[in-house]
Amino acid sequence: MESPEQPPLRRTIESGVMIALLAAFLVVSVLRHNLFGGPAHVKDSIGVIVAAALTLVMYSFLYRDNPMFKSAENLYVGVALGYQAVITWRESLRPEIFDAIVAAPTPEAMREALIHRSVPILLGFLLLTRLSRKYSWLSRYTYALMIGWGAGLGIVLTIDTYILQQLEAAAKPLQDGMLSGGAAAFSWPWWCDAGAVAGAVAVLVGTVCVLFYFFFSVRHGKAGSAVSKVGIWFLMISFGASYGYTVMGRLSLLIGRVRFLMFEWLKTSP
């Protein structure tokens, strides 16, 4: 990309443009949000103005990386981490540990809370031993329990959800369309059922060809290569669909920010 060393004239022009944009932003914010209209206006508007400023600074990266963008980026990471810490304390640690044990209303309540919570708390603390080279082995007890619990619970459900039901679905439409629905394929309007059958055949061919493409144990001969190529085509179509959806998603985020800038910061009527 561009060299960090910019010609002095260009640097001066860019600094001038930056100052002009900042001034324009402040003027627009003051005028649109009536900041001299009293403390109530300021209270309502300050969040919107800060958010608008940070949004514009973030988009300034599209022109070039710059110190303001870096500051906003670091601010974002810091605020997100701080927020997460506060929420974790408020929603997990305080009600589960502090309120239940330290701030328990009666000694009986505290004793009961200790009985129920001491083992989980101990296991939680053992995880922190990862920070010490000498005692990190203690964390394995917690991990062993977590992995054992997760595997025991997950294996049966995962096999059913991810494998058996998906296998059934891959085979079922073909069976339905060609056997039970086969008679209906010749009834009016026949193309509705024919479409379903064609779709099911495409899923079957796609599944087999893609799986064959990833089967590396045997050298693919001439016929095998042809099947693999069909598999690659199916994969490419699938990646294309994912890319299209990703573009749509990213545009939606841009639309969200533009909507915010236009209707909440600039207060234009929708």
């Binding site: 959800t161 039901q165 998906q166 059934e168 679905a169 439409p173 899923v203 699938s238 669909a241 994912s242 959806y245 990703t246 749509m248 998603g249 939606s252 639309i255």
Partner: peptide, 26 residues
């Protein structure tokens, strides 16, 4: 789901494990 996730949801939809899908802003 978000649009980015939507293509990954079609196997669930196809198998009937998911009754319907709202994909992204659309």
């Amino acid at each position: 789901t978000t649009a980015v996730m939507a293509p990954d949801m079609y196997p669930w939809l196809n198998s009937g494990q998911m009754a319907g899908l709202l994909g992204g802003l659309r």
